[in-house]
Design a protein around this nucleic acid. Structure first.
Length: 315
DNA sequence: CGATGTCAAGGAATC
DNA sequence: GATTCCTTGACATCG
């Protein structure tokens, strides 16, 4: 089992940048992002981290319909991409990406659909230019419901199947906290074979059928093709402590009680006891874990240390 | 320097 | 059909 983290690095004093985030007026470029990634790879090497999510903003404006001057960044960086990809292979680094929520493959709006295809093709081309293996995937959500979930599901399946090979090969589907829960993504998998990612926090938030983590893991993890290790997204819920003051009905006295409210936001760190229970529950299944926590790499490193203390050694 | 507005991009709820 | 929220961060601008 590998542990990874997404995008930004907090663990080197300040923050290591992960992509060129300047506005278009300042001429941001993939080349700059790749420079940042090289620095991040130094960090991954030092910390012996072997799984990492590259920001989907890595190539600024590359699919922007009105900004053709940004459309050739992959070609312009062919050499740098090959070099960085070579480095990833040498480090035995599992890379992945996560297109943002504006990428809606099943949208009934033609323009939005077209934009989603452009974006997913970019993700495929980018990972191909790095020369990454099939373990490197782009993780998306099911998209919107648009008042008719069956029809929206159908559109997702059709459009997945019609995606250019370069994009489809890399695409995997994750359960989300609002629209497409574990049974929903399992249905989509049955229809078109897309591999699935289990997000444990989303599963907590959107689980009307009350599937246990064990059941969810057993449904989702085996959807990956032979030879490619599945992965999951793991995070703990933010625990927000707030005091509640009310007036006692009989005495009229003010009574303050502490209530710990669970909210479905990412906590700063991962609760190692919870994770250990999940890991035991998932039984003999083998998978990698993307740690999604506010404290990013620091949370991942903390979890790794906590697990080691419990006798669970990660790669 | 700190506060505030803005960013390419969607969906859904509300009116 | 238009408005607002969702929700995230960081750039960019203004005072």
């Amino acid at each position: 089992m590998r542990l990874g983290f997404p995008a930004k690095v907090l663990g080197r004093g300040g923050v290591l940048k992960d992509y060129d985030s300047r506005r278009w007026q300042s001429g941001p470029h993939l080349r700059v992002s790749l420079g940042y990634l090289n620095t991040i790879f130094d960090y991954l090497t030092e910390e012996r981290i072997r799984m990492y999510r590259i920001s989907s903003n890595v190539a600024p404006y590359i699919t922007h319909p009105d900004k053709p001057q940004f459309h050739n960044q992959i070609e312009e960086c062919a050499e740098e991409l090959a070099h960085l990809g070579e480095r990833a292979r040498r480090l035995d680094l599992r890379l992945s990406m996560h297109p943002n929520h504006y990428t809606v493959l099943n949208s009934p709006v033609e323009r939005v659909y077209a934009g989603a295809v452009r974006d997913l093709v970019f993700h495929g081309r980018f990972m191909d230019a790095l020369g990454l293996g099939p373990e490197a995937v782009a993780v998306v959500h099911g998209g919107g419901v648009f008042g008719d979930k069956r029809a929206a599901t159908e559109r997702f399946v059709e459009r997945y199947e019609r995606l250019p090979e370069q994009a489809r090969r890399r695409l995997v589907l994750e359960n989300d906290e609002k629209s497409y829960n574990v049974p929903d993504v399992c249905e989509i998998h049955r229809r078109c074979g897309i591999p699935l990612v289990l997000d444990t926090l989303h599963h907590r938030a959107n689980n009307p059928e009350r599937l246990s983590n064990r059941e969810a893991a057993r449904a989702v993890i085996p959807t990956w093709p032979k030879g490619v290790r599945p992965k999951i997204h793991y995070s703990s819920a933010r625990r927000e402590d707030r005091s509640i003051t009310r007036r006692d009905r009989d005495t009229g006295e003010r009574v303050t009680s502490e209530a710990a409210a669970l909210r479905f936001q990412h906590a700063d760190l991962v609760d190692a006891d919870e994770f250990t229970a999940f890991f035991a529950d998932a039984g003999p299944l083998v998978f990698d874990v993307m740690v999604e926590a506010k404290r990013k790499d620091l949370a991942m490193l903390q979890l790794r240390a906590d697990l080691r203390a419990r006798g669970i050694v990660t790669e």
